[in-house]
Computed example of a mutant assay.
Amino acid sequence: MKAGIFTIILLIISNVFMTAAWYGNLKLKEMHISTDWPLILVILASWGVALIEYFFMIPAN
Rank of each mutant, 00 (worst) to 15 (best):
19 T>I: 13
29 K>A: 08
44 L>R: 03
45 A>L: 07
16 V>E: 04
35 T>S: 05
31 M>C: 04
47 W>R: 10
20 A>T: 07
48 G>L: 13
26 L>K: 14
19 T>C: 08
42 V>R: 03
60 A>W: 13
16 V>P: 00
44 L>E: 11
37 W>M: 11
25 N>Y: 15
42 V>S: 08
19 T>S: 11
35 T>V: 11
61 N>I: 13
7 T>M: 12
31 M>R: 12
52 I>M: 05
52 I>A: 10
54 Y>H: 03
8 I>Y: 07
21 A>P: 01
10 L>I: 00
34 S>N: 08
25 N>F: 10
2 K>N: 06
11 L>W: 05
25 N>I: 12
61 N>G: 10
2 K>F: 07
23 Y>V: 06
3 A>P: 02
40 I>P: 01
2 K>L: 11
22 W>I: 14
40 I>H: 10
22 W>M: 14
13 I>K: 07
44 L>F: 11
2 K>G: 05
22 W>A: 10
26 L>R: 13
60 A>I: 10
11 L>Q: 02
20 A>F: 03
44 L>Y: 03
14 S>T: 01
35 T>R: 03
5 I>C: 04
43 I>G: 01
45 A>N: 04
10 L>Y: 01
10 L>R: 01
31 M>Q: 08
47 W>L: 15
51 L>C: 05
57 M>A: 14
37 W>Q: 04
48 G>W: 13
51 L>Y: 06
28 L>A: 08
22 W>T: 15
47 W>I: 15
39 L>Q: 12
52 I>C: 08
29 K>S: 09
6 F>T: 11
32 H>F: 10
33 I>T: 02
3 A>F: 09
21 A>W: 06
5 I>P: 05
13 I>T: 08
14 S>W: 07
35 T>Y: 06
50 A>Y: 08
24 G>A: 10
7 T>K: 15
23 Y>F: 13
40 I>F: 05
38 P>A: 02
56 F>H: 07
50 A>R: 03
32 H>V: 06
31 M>K: 12
29 K>T: 10
19 T>P: 02
12 I>L: 08
53 E>P: 00
60 A>N: 13
32 H>S: 09
10 L>A: 00
20 A>H: 02
3 A>V: 06
6 F>G: 04
39 L>H: 13
57 M>S: 07
56 F>E: 03
58 I>M: 14
32 H>G: 04
49 V>N: 09
21 A>Y: 11
34 S>H: 02
58 I>Y: 15
18 M>F: 05
34 S>D: 09
4 G>V: 04
36 D>Y: 06
40 I>T: 09
30 E>K: 12
27 K>G: 01
25 N>Q: 12
24 G>T: 14
29 K>M: 06
48 G>D: 15
29 K>P: 00
3 A>W: 05
59 P>N: 13
5 I>H: 05
34 S>I: 02
54 Y>F: 11
35 T>H: 07
50 A>M: 09
6 F>A: 09
28 L>K: 12
46 S>C: 11
57 M>Y: 12
37 W>K: 03
52 I>P: 00
37 W>S: 04
39 L>F: 13
53 E>K: 02
